[in-house]
């Protein structure tokens, strides 16, 4: 099976139009982009996908070893782009996927040529003068909380792990779009919240737009400003909303900032 199919990837839009790939972060799947992606459907080719182990991706796509770093995720996304035979791609990554975008660009600078980093953070845990917003105790608390919240849904999802049709198993869960295999969710959270991509930022050579929410508990302004300072020539735009997902809370502002930043579409 091609990686793209297994990751529930779709590409829509006029042939030859510039390409946008939207990648969701920790928690939920491609549905997170439902208020933003359609705004580009007329004049861009829009690629949506679910990360390995998340939402509608095939459970077999997740490999505990490959996905113990963000590099493994970046490799999978690049593989999808190669299968779709696209080039000159604008990578729109939310939260932890913003760092996947950075890594994908560094690996294949001619394939991923622009970055839109939505609520990015290069490191969630404070370190010396660096303010990621979390202490190690906070991260431990999160992992303990996630483990506790697995109790209820382990049974419902065990069939997926065993290889039963994951579509059928997921149908039982009305909010399946936000479900991740419990073991994967815990591992993904660990990889996300213990990662450190600060050293990667100065090497970014792509035009970069950073969308920072004014009031975000998970990626505070100090985190967005750090990314902005470290990526030469990047543009930082503050979205006047609250929460970690401006594409849900203020999609119009996200669309308009992206429109300003990107080349004109096909229409």
């Amino acid at each position: 099976m091609e990686v793209g199919g297994a990751l529930n990837a779709t590409m829509t839009g006029p042939s030859g139009a510039p390409v946008l790939v939207f990648v969701h972060g920790f928690g939920c799947g491609q549905q997170m982009w439902r208020l933003v992606a359609p705004a580009f459907a007329q004049d861009f080719r829009v690629i949506l996908l679910d990360l390995p182990g998340s939402a509608g991706s095939d459970p077999s796509t997740y490999d505990a070893e490959r996905h113990s770093t963000l590099e493994g995720y970046a490799d999978d996304i690049l593989q999808v782009l190669r299968e779709l035979a696209v080039d000159d791609v604008t990578f729109v990554g939310h939260s932890v996927a913003s760092m996947m975008g950075v890594l994908a660009h560094l690996k294949e600078p001619s394939l991923v040529t622009r970055l839109v980093l939505v609520s990015p953070s290069a490191r969630y845990v404070d370190d010396g003068d660096y303010r990621g917003g979390f202490s190690q105790a906070d991260v431990d608390d999160l992992l303990a909380m996630m483990e506790r919240n697995q109790l209820g849904w382990q049974g419902a999802l065990s069939g997926m792990v065993a290889g039963e049709s994951h579509v059928a198993a997921r149908a039982e869960l009305d909010d399946s779009f936000c479900r991740t295999r419990p073991d994967v969710a815990l591992h993904f959270a660990t990889v996300t919240f213990t990662g450190d991509n600060r050293a990667d930022l100065p090497r970014v050579a792509a035009p970069t737009l950073i969308l920072q929410v004014r009031d975000d508990l998970i990626a505070p302004i100090s985190a967005g400003e750090y990314v902005h300072e470290q990526i030469a020539g990047s543009r930082l735009q503050i979205i006047e909303t609250r929460g970690h997902a401006p594409h849900l809370t203020d999609p119009d502002a996200v669309v308009s900032a992206m429109r300003d930043f990107m080349p004109v579409g096909a229409a």
């Binding site: 939920c28 202490s135 906070d138 999160l142 909380m145 508990l217 997902a245």
Partner: peptide, 19 residues
């Protein structure tokens, strides 16, 4: 708690919006 805050942002809020 801090871990709960992350779950509220990354899971609860999107699920409320959706379902």
């Amino acid at each position: 708690s801090p871990g709960g805050q992350v779950l509220l942002e990354t899971h609860v809020r999107p699920i409320l919006d959706h379902a």
